[in-house]
């Protein structure tokens, strides 16, 4: 096959795959040339083979649309409050063991250091103040979480409604 035929057949193939009529120059060539006429016939059959599928009844658009819309709505609405709070609290609990271990370490070190200077009752009193302050601090952080989650949700809601 010569170069002209090869290029013509490539262009004929492109036209067939783009589902358009070939350029006049290629059509003329195909009419005069047996090899390219054969290729054109083949492409014609190929198109009808591929077009068979368009006779399949289309799926009702409404059904596709409704389902997609439901999914979009679900994806847009923020996760329920309880579920989100649980997730946030779960995350916040992760470092808690380390905080407690650290606090115990500090208390042990301090009691060893002050053991010879202070009486036992003063040490106990200091220990109680230390641990209760720590407990109140941690308690306040966890108590703030529901408010933070609620605040975040209301910001998200406001930014969604135009």
């Amino acid at each position: 096959m010569n170069r002209l035929c090869e290029e013509t057949q490539d262009r004929l193939s492109d036209a067939a795959l783009d589902q358009r009529t070939p350029d006049p120059i290629d059509r003329e060539h195909a009419e005069a040339c047996d090899a390219c006429a054969q290729h054109r016939n083949f492409l014609h059959t190929l198109r009808s083979a591929l077009d068979d599928v368009s006779r399949v009844p289309a799926l009702p658009m409404r059904r596709v649309q409704d389902r997609a819309t439901r999914v979009l709505r679900a994806a847009q609405s923020p996760a329920p409050f309880g579920k989100r709070l649980l997730r946030v609290v779960g995350l916040a609990l992760l470092p808690l063991p380390f905080v407690i271990a650290y606090a115990i370490g500090i208390a042990k070190g301090a009691s060893q250091l002050l053991d010879s200077i202070l009486p036992q009752s003063a040490l106990i009193w200091l220990g109680m103040i230390y641990f209760s302050t720590l407990a109140i601090g941690i308690g306040l952080v966890y108590a703030a979480l529901p408010f933070a989650v609620a605040q975040r949700r209301s910001i998200e809601r406001n930014s969604e409604s135009p």
Partner: peptide
């Protein structure tokens, strides 16, 4: 698959 495609697109 068509339905699933749109579900994925929406999600």
């Amino acid at each position: 698959l068509l339905q699933d495609t749109w579900v994925r697109i929406a999600r």
